[in-house]
Design a protein around this nucleic acid. Sequence first.
DNA 1: GATATTCACGCAACCGATTGCGAAAAAATA
DNA 2: TATTTTTTCGCAATCGGTTGCGTGAATATC
Lengths: 346, 346
Amino acid sequence: MPEDREVTIYDIARYLNISAATVSRGLKNNPMISKNTRKKIAEAAKSLGYQSNTFASSLRSRHTHTLGVLVPRLNSHFMSSALAGMENAANRHGYNLIIAQSLEDVEKEKRNAATMFNKRVDGLLISLSYNTQDIHHLEPFFKRKIPVVFFDRVYPHDESTSVGINNQEAAYNITKHLISQGCRKIMHLGGNLLRNVYQERLAGYRKALEDHHLPFSKKLYLTGPLSEQAGADAARYILDLPAEERPDAVFSANDTAAVYCMLTLKTAGLRIPEDIAFAGFNNDPISRVIEPNLTTMDYSGDSIGNTAATYLINHLKGISNLYTTNAITLRADMVIRASSLKNKLP
Amino acid sequence: MPEDREVTIYDIARYLNISAATVSRGLKNNPMISKNTRKKIAEAAKSLGYQSNTFASSLRSRHTHTLGVLVPRLNSHFMSSALAGMENAANRHGYNLIIAQSLEDVEKEKRNAATMFNKRVDGLLISLSYNTQDIHHLEPFFKRKIPVVFFDRVYPHDESTSVGINNQEAAYNITKHLISQGCRKIMHLGGNLLRNVYQERLAGYRKALEDHHLPFSKKLYLTGPLSEQAGADAARYILDLPAEERPDAVFSANDTAAVYCMLTLKTAGLRIPEDIAFAGFNNDPISRVIEPNLTTMDYSGDSIGNTAATYLINHLKGISNLYTTNAITLRADMVIRASSLKNKLP
DNA sequence: GATATTCACGCAACCGATTGCGAAAAAATA
DNA sequence: TATTTTTTCGCAATCGGTTGCGTGAATATC
């Protein structure tokens, strides 16, 4: 029971009358060391209560077994699921996660990126903030060949991989579904077009309209932060519209806005889906609580996080090569619920 | 633009014809170094693109400016809010967070604790897993005097501080509120009594019953994982009860179980709150989406996380002393909503 | 039995920043 | 001007693993 002094490989070496180099190698199961001494080292380590010092190791070996994770915010269902997925993958492979949030602020994103770089993370997992314009702040990573994986809110870059879903296709399908339910004036609540996810969802929405010979109307396209407030505001906007211009469906780029829009419209007496059908995006828990339940896109944060992290780690281990893979697209399934079911079944 | 070589303080030293020691001190604004050379060092550092090497620094100085965070799961609204609060506090004070989840499994909690210890975190923030019995696995921290702060799911220990709310009082008040609404047969959905939060909520519930001369009935006390499934199961349990034994209110130890219980009961035709009133705990987003809105305890993860982290950091900085403070209790406010309002106003 | 291989391990130089102690230079005081 | 005090900085020894290279012993080959 050592009290204040740390137990080092030197202590083990002295204890066994061998060199520290051998101990170091033995602890890492280096085949250069005989099975027998390896066992003795392991036992001595345990009995002495040895704990490896990560810094010393990182300082010399130049890798940290730590991944940096940079997200817009920690406290959304999608993000926390993604983090959970990453943590799972990382933990399984002996990696740790340093997590920071940009709070949708580019400046904070830049500072955090710098910190991660300083902490010498082995790789970076990043989902861009709401208003990030470019990725100059990631240059240091690219220069040092530190692999970067974008997830969800990605950015085209040919030395890194993006993990996400096919937003355009998903939005196309969900819009098409609304059309198949007889909706003709479909409103879209979107986010900042700087972010691919919102850009692509808008594109999918427009494409679906076009393919079904429905006009795109600027009056039926609202863009904003997709917050609870934004959802309620959209509802009021709809209510203020002359009756003949009112949409008969709303496709929101996330569930939060959809749900709060629904709540407000319900209070105003509109019936869902009879008067106005709804579809969201994310399959957030609230989508299964709102009445009627919200049709949405199941968009698993967990598998996105897991995939992104696993992929990054595989690259680090040399199993796969990140520089040759441009994007990984995960499946997203439409979950049809009562909020959009005007007919019997889709 | 150095390509593969790292820029070190030695490079700066050579560049300015001074010693590395001076550079090291200068970079940290040590007053021992003249203002003038300090400025020159800062400029040289910038122009050479110097990035401090955290390991080397940590190895020598024996602190990492990193806090370990160990939570049951990352993907709950409460936890992700707590993490967001911690990240905020940590970031503000120049600390980083290493986050891991136990997934409610003691063994994983133990492994994670060991990893954190190995990574030499400066302090540990922990919320215990569902079935953790004791905290032997934290002994290494205590021995090394690495401060530990428990939050939410705490554990009595006299060398560390706990941050949470007064669960008993909160539960007492919410039960009293239900009683004040005329409820006489109040059911309680609780969690594992190993965890103080559920233990205390049960105690508060029982105390309120007692103070109002209402009997405690084992038939009206269900314990379980408080999941969606558990909520639905509780509903079925209620429905299977003979009419005269059915509760006229449910106080659930979290919102998830309350909401899914409500949904199932509503489907079965019960009216809320007329037939059965509801109160939850946490003020989860779903509590504001369910209809009627759920009465609950506003239990800010953000402020708990923020407080816990700030407190830990203050201790590390020597501003406050963690060993003398036993517990920090934050305010929890009852949020009365329609699910429990049988009378006009409370 | 002599030589060639293989195996198991030790030597010592790192990795890059920190810091106690001492010394030279500058400023203050006598 | 001589001496004391203060300022400013350098020396060199860490911190604890890691790793290229070398060596002696064990085993294999002829």
